[in-house]
Amino acid sequence: MTFAAAIAQISPKLGDLKSNLALYEQKIRAAAKEKVDLLLFPELSLTGYFLRDMVPSVALRLSSPEIETLKRLSRDVGFVAGLVEESPDYRFFNAAVYFEGGEIRHVHRKVYLPTYGMFDEQRYFARGDRLRAFDSKFGRMAVLICEDLWHPSAVYVTALDGALAVLCPSTSPLRGITEGEPQDDNARYWELINRTYAETFGLYLIYGNRTGFEDGVGFWGGSEIVDPFGEKIAKANYYEEDFIVAEVNFDSVRRKRTMAPLLRDEDIDLTVNELMRIRGRPDWSTVNSQQSKAKREPAKRKGDKARK
């Protein structure tokens, strides 16, 4: 399967849904003219990133008129939109929605919400609880949002779930300066992991970052499409708006996985067994261990309570 993938490296207005929707429309129409098949927008690019208390006022139900507009726009070009999704029980998710052929084909709710340093996402968003690949007309793909990709387990799971391409909408702030480098430290780290994942899992890594500033925080742009051999087949400029297109050809995935059948050789049972052992260890704990255990072991919890 061959298709033209593109990234709209835009600079949305913070909290201005209407003008960002107009920007989306403009980019989608431009993409259609250029015969783009699949277009990636950055994380939360329909709303802006540092939303804080604006979250509820820019959130969209999947039944909202704005979503209907996006569906209509997807008749010619498939695209991933970055937005705040409001669930029927009034939770707000940092979500990426894949539109294709006039319909929603997939929704990914960001799982790993950074809440440290300059980030405050878990204060405002509910956490997604799924890592899934999905079928598009171009083949099987996955969407992981920004910080999700900093967890190798997320890429690992979606690769095993059959993704031939990982689409990563991102809003990555520039930070850290090193002598003699053309980009900031954070940009360089992203480029390292994008390439590592593409080569390790033998897939296309389509990474769409935004640009512009919000309250002095700049976003470094530098969006890229990396093929399974680690080649950047398209690379956007740093620190300014851009639009890039590249031909994605899943024959490359086939060739890469033939040469290095790492996914074929994955021992899922071994991994699961070892993870279960680690999870069962008395000293095992993470920030969300209580929450995760509660979800998985309701019966045991009752017993614990009775003993108390």
Binding site: I177, T178, E179, G180, E181, P182, D184, F213, Y239, E240
Partner: peptide
């Protein structure tokens, strides 16, 4: 202290 003046200049001007 890193003083990548080319990069700093670019970032500050666009800021």
């Amino acid at each position: 202290i890193p003083t990548n003046v080319t990069l700093l200049r670019r970032i500050l001007v666009s800021f």
